[in-house]
Design a protein around this nucleic acid. Structure first.
Length: 297
DNA sequence: GCGACAG
DNA sequence: ATCTTGTCGC
């Protein structure tokens, strides 16, 4: 219950649909939520669930092995056998129940991303005077930090902080629904004048996203500000010979320095975003590292 | 079988 | 992101 409040009721009600004497898989539940990529989150939630009205013991792995259970796997096997399910050598011999009644809630979020993606502008002159790095860290809730630097002299102008509980779980490709609210609130704490002339560096992807709408693009469009995504690992795409990242032959971003992935968020091009981040680092300005450090305890 | 899977 | 969970593709 600590993580995703938003999708959790949907997930638990899906688990309740699995009849006694039948089993389903984490992946099948994720598909019923609207996206198989949520399978890992499904497993995490169910392994932590203690509600006796939710039959988590009927959820197993796609290879028919047992998976986890909060009271131990032995208890899971016992409950399954009591329901007449054939369990032998740590495997369940039963057809997978997948006949869920569902509204596929995750699809609505994906559709939101597709709509926002149509508003993304992949060009801009980046005539800005300030740069803000924004990062969110978690420990008993989330802490978002926005570190604003003056580009004329590289000095730290201001640092803003916000602490709140994220309402959306972490599911790959849906990060913007977890962290977008932190970023938007932080930017709204900036003065109008400060905001006007500022580009945002976001810890995550922009255009380098399966639906062309990662966190940086999402908040860029919502705030109508130039944004660049800088991620520490690759979510999707294929690497070219000079660090380019492609999705279906389309350039979506770059790997830089071997351990950073840069992609345009909004109102900047792919090459423009790489140039901007490179020049910042050459000038010794690292807003994201600063935001990351102050967000950590 | 081993690793990847934004944070 | 932390303490571990599933699935798919190489």
């Amino acid at each position: 219950m600590v993580s995703g409040c938003v999708l959790e009721p949907s997930l638990l009600s899906l688990v309740k649909q699995v009849p006694g004497g039948k089993v389903t898989t984490y992946g099948a539940l994720a598909r019923a939520l609207g996206d198989p990529i949520a399978a890992r989150w499904v497993g995490k939630v169910l392994s932590e669930n203690y509600r006796s009205d939710v039959p988590c013991h009927r959820v197993i792995m796609s290879d028919l092995s047992l998976g986890g259970y909060n009271k131990g796997v032995d208890e899971k096997v016992k409950k399954l056998k009591e329901e007449g399910i054939d369990v032998a050598a740590g495997r369940v011999n039963e057809k997978i129940f997948e006949d869920f009644v569902t509204s596929y809630p995750l699809r609505r979020y994906a559709e939101t991303q597709l709509k926002l993606a149509q508003k993304v502008v992949l060009e801009g002159d980046l005539k800005v005077g300030r740069v803000a790095g924004i990062d969110v860290s978690y420990r008993e809730g989330g802490k978002g930090v926005c570190s604003i630097f003056d580009l004329s002299d590289g000095s730290l102008i201001e640092e803003l902080t916000i602490v709140k509980r994220p309402k959306f779980p972490y599911i790959p490709t849906y990060l913007s629904f977890r962290e977008g609210g932190f970023i938007i609130e932080l930017v709204k704490m900036m003065s109008k004048e400060e905001r006007k002339d500022c580009i945002l560096l976001i810890d995550g992807n922009g255009y380098m996203h399966p639906r062309k709408c990662g966190l940086a693009s999402h908040v860029g469009v919502v705030l109508d500000m130039p944004t660049i995504g800088v991620a520490k690992s690759r979510l999707c795409g294929k690497s070219g010979e000079k660090g380019e990242i492609y999705i279906n032959q389309e350039l979506v971003g770059f790997a830089i320095g071997g351990n950073r992935y840069v992609s345009p968020g909004h109102r900047v091009s792919a090459y423009g975003s790489r140039r901007f981040v490179r020049r910042l680092l050459e000038a010794g300005i690292d807003p994201l590292r600063r935001a990351h450090r102050t967000s950590r305890p």
